[in-house]
Design a protein around this nucleic acid. Structure first.
Length: 193
DNA sequence: ATCCCGATAAGA
DNA sequence: CTTATCGGGATT
């Protein structure tokens, strides 16, 4: 029994899911091996009411399509040459998601180090673009169900304390800029900032 | 704190 | 074709 989180796990309100994911283990298997990390920072994006979300106002495009489906699937997209990974949440036709902003390396340290090049360990996975590179998550993981190989989330540990604050990198999003929809494990050393 | 890099999707 | 972007890295 591998304790991979089942599809039902993702059937909770997006803000709850963003918190529940903290401490869970994000795993990616590739030909080069398996790499994983404990999720330590997340952000919620609640499309219908959130100007910072790609799916704001239920905007339906090729890119946002997966968010209109069932929760528990992967939403990847590329920005500024970096791939970012989200967990689709919300019921059918509710385009919401949780962005994974940072993880703490767990399995496959050698592989992570190789992928991240000549960096210090604390910089391996402390950002949304860094962790995808470290774990080998790529754009074509878009649409993958998170309860099966090669990309899945396992039960991890229960964080002692969770902090909450404004999201990062969305200064151009009007009032949504100030919504406190970012969550992180208090004092974890792999937080993005 | 500031600049630069530059892939892609989306809108004009 | 033009523009904006849920970053990262290097540099001041």
């Amino acid at each position: 029994m591998m304790s991979i989180l089942s599809a039902e796990f993702y059937e909770q309100p997006t803000l709850e899911l963003a918190k529940s994911l903290l401490g869970c283990e994000l795993v990616k298997e590739t030909e080069k091996g398996t790499a994983s990390g404990y999720i330590v920072e997340t952000e919620a994006y609640i499309g219908p009411v959130d100007r910072a979300a790609h799916s704001f106002n239920n905007k339906r495009t090729q890119r946002t399509e997966v968010m209109f489906g069932l929760p528990g699937y992967v939403y990847t997209y590329v920005m500024h040459t970096h791939c970012l990974v989200n967990v689709v949440s919300g019921e059918l036709n509710h385009p919401e998601a949780v962005l994974i902003r940072a993880v703490e390396p767990k399995e496959g340290l050698d592989l992570i180090q190789e992928r991240r090049g000549d960096k210090k360990e604390k910089d391996f996975t402390n950002g949304p673009g860094k962790l995808t590179k470290a774990l080998g998550i790529i754009k074509s993981d878009y649409g993958h169900p998170l309860d099966q190989s090669p990309l899945y989330i396992k039960k991890g540990f229960s964080p002692e304390h969770i902090s909450q604050g404004k999201r990062i990198g969305i200064d151009n999003s009007g009032e949504a800029r100030d919504y406190p929809w970012r969550f992180w494990i208090t004092e974890n050393r792999f937080i993005s900032r």
